[in-house]
Amino acid sequence: MSLDRKTVAHIATLARIRLEPKEADALAGELEGILRWVEQLNEVDVSGVAPMSGVEQFKLPQRKDAVTDGGDRDRILANAPEAAAGFFAVPKVVE
């Protein structure tokens, strides 16, 4: 699989990473290397093998429906670059 610059630019946009045009070529090469490495896995015949979700055969732990958390606004907002009136305040997102 080969990656063109346009695809790399698109992935960068989706990931919100600012990319200079000259960086795109280098990144395309690196990403291609990763993809080639992953594609080797296609050589293994996995027909009839169920997808594995983890190495440990635990059951998904579940929780009772009870309110055990929250009410800690100061700590929730403590790391926010900006907060006002109990809200996170971020640069205006206009629809």
């Binding site: 429906d65 929250g70 009410g71 907002l77």
Partner: peptide, 27 residues
Amino acid sequence: VSKAKLFSGAATAFGAEPNTQVSFVDA
């Protein structure tokens, strides 16, 4: 309809003061 959220123990009630029903998971 549930008391707590899907993946955290914070409350779901409508109309609470902002960010008072938030766990670290939700944030």
